[in-house]
Nucleic acid binder design. Structure first.
Lengths: 333, 333
DNA sequence: TCCTGATTTGGAACCGGTTCCTTTTTTAAA
DNA sequence: TTTAAAAAAGGAACCGGTTCCAAATCAGGA
């Protein structure tokens, strides 16, 4: 059976406090050190994590709460967190909230119970309940993707993403545009991106019709929304609030026999891997999900160590011009 | 401060053993029960997991080892596991092996150390090292996706997937086919699928040229392989061992200006969500990743409870005819 | 009212480590 | 050789629960 520290102590003929000291780098004579080295190795001794944590009252676990496991953004972020946490000798505990706000709260309580060193939360929206739960948890909570005045956060520059996208498509000559967004409850994705886009339209000065629509994050819903848009206002371009929504719109366009980008231009936001793979490649804005994960892990470690960090860290985004937007200024052949 | 069981006992004027009994449904008088109900609630008492686990020598955690976090198959499987584990009142601990075999071994040791109730492992390949580590872990280990004579497993019917695909494309009239596979070290994906496909060719009886190529799982590599295939043997169809590989081939075809499926037919395996979204939709075989996850969770729970289960559970696959394969039998217009 | 058996309760040991404090041993200086 | 200081080792308490066993309380029957 698995050995305990007392077993080792007995085998070595020393007190268990000595073994503990040996294991944790305390003052032990060279002779004893050597003997214990051999014995622990031969016995295959591994300390019991619970006993350690019980005494230490904390772990080196970082809890990550994600809205779902099968999303590109979540997967990239988790990978980034994992890489950094592992490098720091810790481990990442993933909690899947399944897109339900209640379960995000529940997850914070549960993670606090498990005495994780810190929590990284990727919420769709920050509610007072979140703040209360974060407060009650008594451990650092870091938001990713959404900001808050109360909690520390790592956010993307959603406003700039919208602005860059707006400037680009206007510069390509589009003046009849549908904006397919998501609920404004989602401040980052629903609101900021749209604001940036609107401001780009405003600063352009010229006449430009923008029709605003709304969809959920699901591809199927995006397809339906696209049907409505095409029926109602036949724009030259549909700007979609996420790459997934854009994929749905692309599908609908294909089904209607519209060629992209000649008959309909489409853009997304996100920079999912698939956007370069599909044909035509999707013009989008790349969000540094992976980097955000790494950064979040570093920051939450700092918080756990009691260090001060900036309230809000804003990560820059990168505009990616690809093939799905037609240049309406080009001389006709 | 967080309360301990002794605090509660003191507040209630009883021994801590009584509180423990109350919490775990032991024999407690109605009066005491009532009092403790109130006090634990008011004090917001939550038991310390470590102390519990230290005594119990086990947890209700299920450890899941995945090759990577950002893969469709892994995400679906994890979601399935999570759903089932949560329903059973447990929790899933995810360990990302980052596609490195060593880290799979390391993960098993680490999870054993953390006394998880069982391990679900999704390996690319089962090596003697895996078997040794599973043995040493002393807790149930269940494989998903790859079988083994030594360990319990949930596998897909890869052979049948290959067979169905082969029969279908032959029936569509293809006789000059490239099979773009992966290393045979991967028994399920690299070997079984190909064997099924070969047998379909054999049973067809007619003359049929099959050119076999190999790629990694990466889209970029698949694109390069596609270039070689198109240069070397100009088949009417490329059968790809995974949907991701197929996506790479589709991309290359598009870049070369080949229209799909008229000039080149392409198929995949997997049933990733994106295969229905791209245009033309990819003909593929759907693998029940989500269901496999749910089943795996149930089975590993049974193993943890000491129940007997079948050595190998084979899950059926579903052929999905979509648009990316041309019917060469159709009368030319 | 007293006795017996069933229920409740309290006390102590234990799970496997860490840490503080004291005692013993070693080392070096006087 | 003696002595003081430093290094090493031992012992016990503690972290926060669970569980076993003995003691106390309660109920019902004689």
């Amino acid at each position: 059976m698995t050995k305990t520290i007392s077993d080792i102590a007995q085998m070595a003929g020393v007190a268990k406090s000595t073994v503990s000291r040996y294991l944790n780098g305390g003052s032990v004579s060279a002779k004893t050190k050597q003997k214990l080295e051999r014995i622990t190795r031969e016995a295959g001794y591994v300390p019991n994590t619970f006993a350690q944590s019980l005494k230490a009252k904390r772990t080196n676990l970082i809890g990550t709460i994600v809205p779902r496991l099968d999303s590109f953004a979540a997967a990239q972020t988790m990978t980034g967190i994992d890489e950094e946490v592992r490098a720091a000798g810790g481990q990442m505990l993933i909690y899947n909230a399944g897109q339900e706000r209640e379960r995000e709260i529940e997850a914070m309580q549960e993670l606090a119970r498990q005495k994780v060193a810190g929590i990284i939360l990727m919420p769709a929206r920050v509610t007072p309940d979140h703040l209360r739960a974060a407060e009650a948890a008594g451990i650092p909570v870091l938001l990713v993707g959404q900001g808050s005045d109360q909690l520390h956060s790592v956010v993307y520059d959603d406003y700039r993403a919208g602005l860059l996208m707006g400037r680009y498509v206007l510069q390509q000559g589009h003046r009849r545009i549908a904006y397919l967004g998501v609920t404004e409850d989602d401040e980052a994705v629903g609101l900021r991106r749209k604001e940036g886009f609107r401001d780009a339209v405003a600063e352009c000065g010229e006449d430009c019709e923008v029709f605003e629509y709304e969809s959920s994050f699901k591809i199927a819903d995006a397809r339906l929304a696209a049907e409505r848009i095409l029926d109602e206002c036949s724009p030259t371009l549909i700007v979609c609030a996420t790459d997934n929504i854009a994929l749905g719109v692309v599908k609908t366009a294909h089904l209607r026999g519209l060629s992209i980008p000649e008959q309909l231009s489409i853009t997304g936001f996100g920079g999912y891997e698939v956007t370069e793979i599909i044909h035509p490649a999707l013009t989008t804005v790349r969000f540094p999900y992976f980097e955000a994960g790494k950064l979040a892990a570093r920051l939450v470690h700092k918080l756990a160590a009691g260090e001060e960090i900036e309230q809000r860290t804003i990560l820059d985004v990168e505009f990616l011009a690809q093939e799905s937007v037609d240049n309406l200024n080009k001389p006709s052949v």
